[in-house]
Design a protein around this nucleic acid. Structure first.
Lengths: 163, 163
DNA sequence: GTTCCTGCAAAATTTTTGCATCAGT
DNA sequence: ACTGATGCAAAAATTTTGCAGGAAC
């Protein structure tokens, strides 16, 4: 029920869907803008604005940071991206799938690693909750904080060593 | 089950509990530090570092921003504060109650207002989920995004006016 | 040919840090 | 007294903005 495995992202289709959505909304599919979209589409994990700019630079496709930020802002406004803030470091972004299918995140507070999971039980609870609140719920963000398996094992063995 | 009413915060006791926890952890209960704690304790809603500094200044108790940030960092590290990032504006903080009792937030994306709610159904789902993951879950953050009742009413009446 | 988009660089915002001085225990 | 905490101011890190030139439609 709760999957922690790689989430199938059918990258290509999100990039295509995004290009369509931009055109339909009257925006241009310029080179730099699509370079940002393609970079996001190639990674199922979250990326920061800086990381996107760096990756593009290392591919020889220099795109100014301002352009990256503007593209991210536009895409998020169109519901094509999800934003994730973990409290450490800059804001991260990842593709939002048109199916409404989405996942949430596990943040390891020791190593900073972010991974994804899905859980239908939680989604159902959130759906029921949304119907009860005097608030028009349009989306939700959920982050579980703690220690990933690797770090948990490390801190366990350290504790044993000390004992 | 889902409460959106004011959450009883028994302010005084959190401030006292925090002073104790600081002392027990070997930290000093200095004037500026406790001024930050008391400001947080007087508000059940979230506050930013800047807001805390401003409130203190307007009370005549000037505390440097650096001190506010250092106090917030310390308190969060001791589990005495929760941190909330909404993606708009600076990080917000609020008291974390020693009972483990906690709430989550509703963020209105139109007016930026943040309110709180509790829901046992969601908490139970999250508990079940945590047991299934290969991850040592120590806490969770949940933000529901959308429109508050006021903004939803406004956008509804605007739509009618246009029709 | 328009109009939107980009890149650069400067500015704004938020948070962190170094260091001399001060206060809590 | 000792040691940690503060305040200031400078720096770092992240994001936004103005504007002249360039690219998409």
């Amino acid at each position: 029920m709760a999957t922690q495995a790689a989430i199938p992202t059918s990258t290509q289709s999100w990039v295509e869907h995004t290009a369509d959505a931009l055109r339909r909304a009257g925006y241009r599919s310029s080179g730099p803008r699509m370079a940002v979209v393609e970079t996001l589409g190639r990674h199922d994990c979250v990326l920061t604005a800086g990381e996107i700019a760096d990756r593009l630079r290392s591919e020889g496709r220099d795109v100014g940071v301002a352009t990256v930020y503007r593209a991210l802002e536009l895409l998020e406004g169109l519901g094509l991206l999800h934003r994730l803030e973990t409290g450490e470091g800059p804001t991260r972004y990842e593709p939002a799938h048109p199916t409404g299918e989405h996942h949430h995140h596990l943040l390891c507070e020791r190593c900073g690693h972010v991974s994804a999971f899905e859980d239908q039980g939680v989604e159902r609870s959130l759906g029921r909750l949304a119907r009860r609140l005097d608030f028009r719920v349009e989306g939700h963000d959920l982050v579980l904080r703690g220690q990933c398996a690797v770090c948990a094992a490390e801190s366990r063995s350290k504790a044993e060593g000390r004992a």
